Simulated scan of single mutants.
Amino acid sequence: MWRAIASNAMTLFIVFLLAVGVAVIWAKDQYSAEGPLASAICLRVESGTNMNALAERLADQGAISNLAIFRAGAEYSGKSSQLKAGSFLIQPGTSMEGIINTVTASGRSTCGTEINFRIGVLRAEVKVRELDPETSKYVEIISFDPAEEAPEAYVDYAERGDTRYRVTLAEGVTSWQVVQELRQAEFLEGSLSAMPDEGSLAPDSYEVKRGSERQALVDRMTAAQSAVLAEAWEGRAEGLPLNSPEEALILASIVEKETGLAEERPQVASVFVNRLRKGMLLQTDPTVIYGVTEGRGNLGRGIRQSELDRETPYNTYVIKGLPPTPIANPGRAAIEAALNPDTTEYIFFVADGTGGHAFAKTLREHNNNVAEWRKIEAERAKNQ
């Protein structure tokens, strides 16, 4: 009798173990299987949130199929206490395992609110935008001039712990403009030790944290520009009339200010390279303007004849060769164009009315192009 009871107990125990094994295998499969989320969501995890509370919110949003498995998976993997604050993009079908890995990894937000402080050639602008999870595109919420009082709604976004910050430099801004605008970035701290050399800052988009030091950011911009210039100089074309990386940076800044069309930069660079080779005056308006403004904002009017006639270090209608310094901070494309210009015989160019330029090899061709441009200017003036 006892032998029969023992045999039955052993059988039941084996069945139980098998059932547990099957349940564990099923749970592991469920944990790593494709999840039920139908469309992407931006999951915001606030500081102090625990894994249990997050699991309930995920279940309410239809992102996980089983609360118990999610919690057990987090506990078993040792990640239940590693939850990071931030906003995380969860793609459709992400498994429970994938969600846990996402919210316990770096803590770097991948969606949510971003404040972009953009320093442009004409003005600075603060833009608050949020990522639309379904389209993976940013939607602008607020936009304002940093010189003006920030809208009340901006403060709400700025005080969120998971808001990301970015400072963007447009190609062609001057160092004076950068310094002036960075002083107005309320999320940055500290002063700047000195005015950065003109041309030494790399136009780019820089992610920063609230409370970052202004000088540290400028140092990053300077290091980035040095790296870009060194790489481009190493790969430069042979036979250029440029004696140093510094001269290349000066030419690149002129190219940057002369055209807003990316595809034109190598052609514009070729004109100035050809003029330097021939010993011709560069005769470029942006250098004259820089001599007048010293890079402190925009001229806001046409160049006067007296300014074209007056000899200054930046008046390339009077001085030979390059001006003494860059006239703006050129981007990578302009630097590469200056060091690898197109091979052309062009020595003239003038606006063509489309946003680009008409290039010419001879003065006669150039005069014809100028005449066409004058007609376009007159027609536009008549229609205003």
Results as ranks from 00 to 15, higher is better:
residue 4 A to K: 13
residue 8 N to D: 09
residue 10 M to G: 15
residue 18 L to T: 14
residue 23 A to Q: 11
residue 30 Q to G: 03
residue 34 E to P: 06
residue 40 A to M: 06
residue 42 C to H: 03
residue 47 S to P: 02
residue 59 A to R: 09
residue 61 Q to S: 14
residue 61 Q to W: 13
residue 62 G to Q: 12
residue 64 I to K: 00
residue 67 L to P: 00
residue 73 G to H: 01
residue 79 K to V: 04
residue 98 G to M: 08
residue 98 G to L: 06
residue 100 I to E: 00
residue 103 V to G: 02
residue 103 V to N: 03
residue 104 T to D: 08
residue 115 I to F: 04
residue 115 I to M: 09
residue 117 F to N: 02
residue 123 R to N: 14
residue 147 A to G: 15
residue 147 A to D: 15
residue 161 G to I: 04
residue 165 Y to D: 02
residue 168 T to G: 08
residue 170 A to M: 07
residue 172 G to I: 03
residue 184 Q to W: 05
residue 185 A to Y: 07
residue 199 G to H: 03
residue 200 S to T: 12
residue 212 S to D: 14
residue 214 R to L: 09
residue 235 G to T: 12
residue 237 A to Q: 15
residue 239 G to W: 13
residue 239 G to H: 11
residue 245 P to N: 13
residue 267 Q to E: 14
residue 289 I to P: 00
residue 297 G to S: 10
residue 298 N to M: 11
residue 299 L to I: 08
residue 306 S to N: 13
residue 331 G to T: 03
residue 331 G to Y: 00
residue 335 I to E: 00
residue 335 I to A: 04
residue 344 T to A: 10
residue 349 F to T: 07
residue 352 D to Y: 08
residue 361 K to M: 12
residue 364 R to A: 15
residue 365 E to K: 07
residue 377 E to P: 02
residue 384 Q to F: 04
